[in-house]
Computed example of a mutant assay.
Amino acid sequence: MPSDFDLFEVLEPETQRIPFVFNSPHSGRKYPVSFVEESRLDGAAIRRSEDHFVDELFAAATDLGAPLLLAHFPRAFLDVNREPYELDPRMFEGSLPPYANVNSIRVAGGLGTIPRIVAENMEIYRRRLPVEEALLRIEAIYKPYHTCLRKLVARTHSLFGFGVLIDCHSMPGNIRVAGTGIRPDFIIGDRYGTSASAELSNAALQILENMGFAAVRNKPYAGGFITEHYGRPARGLHALQVEINRSLYIDEATLQKRPEFAAVAAAIGSFMQQMADFVEGSSADVAYAAE
């Protein structure tokens, strides 16, 4: 397992003042040398699956009084927004454990816990990996990451009586909502109403629309494993996935920040503040909801 990069970190406020946890699992951009060497992709292509700079866009979370968990390892290396063992047996030398989920749609698409591809169906690896390598990544990175996230969510729930997890992501600029032609600036995912209360999801959409953004719910991204796994509205635990259109803030060809980056970050800071204000003003209504 590479030792030349920290796995992840939690940016903490001096005191947690709001019942929110922010999580950026796909913005990691520290690529282990051994991983790059075993990839068939160049340094630019291998970054195509990153949620570019999303950790920076949500950095104001700590100023508002909420923790921000962020990955340093890249999504192409390990995807913590999957089940722990969504693995494609065609990728590995050796037998996977019997509990591995080898038949999920995400595995079939090449986007399992150990991804086979990055965006545009570009194959990552030159050759098959030892199965022991996959299992080591899961033990050494995936499980500690989720242990950390669970502790943050549990602490928040204990402090406030309920909690809201915001899972922070980005999406390609060419995404359209099927059948409408709408190119959304933001997509709010709540697993079709199962991971968060309707009041919370609707508030997120309304805030973004009032700020002048095109915002939609669940299509084409309803939320991944993290949203589904941590969202338990009946227990006072809500999880929303927020997808930001990358073309708002980076040049998708060069992956460099656009001049609008600071303005987008400021807008997201305002969104976070307004979400916190909404929850504070109506916590009795949104804290607990039927799943």
Results as ranks from 00 to 15, higher is better:
residue 237 L to H: 08
residue 223 G to P: 03
residue 179 G to V: 04
residue 212 G to D: 07
residue 54 V to Y: 10
residue 144 P to S: 07
residue 185 D to H: 08
residue 49 S to G: 10
residue 24 S to V: 05
residue 29 R to D: 15
residue 58 F to T: 11
residue 227 T to A: 08
residue 38 E to Q: 13
residue 20 F to S: 00
residue 249 Y to W: 09
residue 284 A to T: 12
residue 234 A to L: 05
residue 177 V to K: 02
residue 228 E to K: 11
residue 275 M to H: 03
residue 194 T to R: 13
residue 239 A to T: 09
residue 237 L to M: 11
residue 55 D to G: 15
residue 284 A to V: 13
residue 39 S to T: 15
residue 285 D to E: 15
residue 165 L to E: 02
residue 235 R to M: 12
residue 117 I to L: 10
residue 129 L to N: 02
residue 50 E to Y: 00
residue 123 E to Y: 04
residue 47 R to G: 03
residue 57 L to E: 08
residue 100 A to H: 05
residue 50 E to T: 01
residue 124 I to Y: 01
residue 122 M to N: 04
residue 78 L to H: 05
residue 231 G to I: 03
residue 102 V to Y: 02
residue 170 S to E: 10
residue 39 S to R: 01
residue 291 E to G: 15
residue 119 A to W: 03
residue 287 A to V: 13
residue 75 R to F: 05
residue 159 L to W: 06
residue 36 V to P: 01
residue 132 E to D: 15
residue 154 A to W: 04
residue 106 R to T: 01
residue 20 F to T: 00
residue 108 A to P: 06
residue 125 Y to R: 08
residue 254 T to R: 11
residue 30 K to A: 11
residue 210 N to W: 00
residue 64 L to D: 01
residue 242 V to I: 15
residue 237 L to T: 08
residue 197 S to R: 04
residue 177 V to Y: 03
residue 239 A to E: 03
residue 204 A to S: 15
residue 77 F to Q: 11
residue 193 G to W: 02
residue 254 T to Y: 04
residue 261 F to P: 13
residue 23 N to H: 14
residue 173 G to L: 06
residue 124 I to L: 12
residue 96 L to A: 11
residue 5 F to Q: 10
residue 252 E to L: 12
residue 289 A to P: 06
residue 195 S to G: 07
residue 68 L to A: 13
residue 44 A to S: 14
residue 124 I to C: 03
residue 131 V to Q: 09
residue 60 A to K: 09
residue 186 F to T: 00
residue 74 P to T: 15
residue 230 Y to M: 02
residue 133 E to A: 12
residue 29 R to N: 14
residue 157 H to G: 10
residue 96 L to E: 10
residue 46 I to N: 01
residue 238 H to I: 08
residue 254 T to G: 09
residue 117 I to V: 15
residue 19 P to D: 12
residue 66 A to E: 09
residue 77 F to P: 02
residue 245 N to E: 06
residue 59 A to S: 15
residue 288 Y to A: 12
residue 257 K to V: 04
residue 281 G to A: 14
residue 195 S to D: 03
residue 75 R to N: 09
residue 83 E to C: 02
residue 213 F to E: 06
residue 132 E to N: 14
residue 191 R to P: 00
residue 78 L to I: 12
residue 282 S to Q: 10
residue 231 G to N: 11
residue 258 R to H: 06
residue 25 P to R: 07
residue 111 L to G: 00
residue 107 V to T: 09
residue 87 L to F: 02
residue 44 A to L: 15
residue 214 A to E: 08
residue 284 A to M: 07
residue 105 I to C: 04
residue 147 T to C: 06
residue 131 V to G: 10
residue 275 M to Y: 02
residue 146 H to G: 14
residue 122 M to C: 00
residue 183 R to N: 05
residue 158 S to G: 11
residue 52 H to K: 11
residue 84 P to G: 08
residue 165 L to W: 08
residue 237 L to G: 02
residue 95 S to H: 06
residue 215 A to T: 09
residue 233 P to D: 12
residue 251 D to E: 14
residue 81 N to Y: 00
residue 239 A to Q: 01
residue 129 L to Q: 07
residue 126 R to G: 01
residue 44 A to R: 15
residue 247 S to Y: 04
residue 231 G to W: 05
residue 290 A to W: 05
residue 262 A to L: 14
residue 259 P to L: 06
residue 214 A to L: 04
residue 164 V to W: 01
residue 250 I to C: 05
residue 47 R to D: 01
residue 251 D to M: 13
residue 254 T to I: 09
residue 134 A to N: 01
residue 17 R to H: 09
residue 11 L to Y: 06
residue 218 N to V: 04
residue 197 S to M: 05
residue 26 H to R: 13
residue 50 E to H: 01
residue 221 Y to P: 00
residue 138 I to G: 07
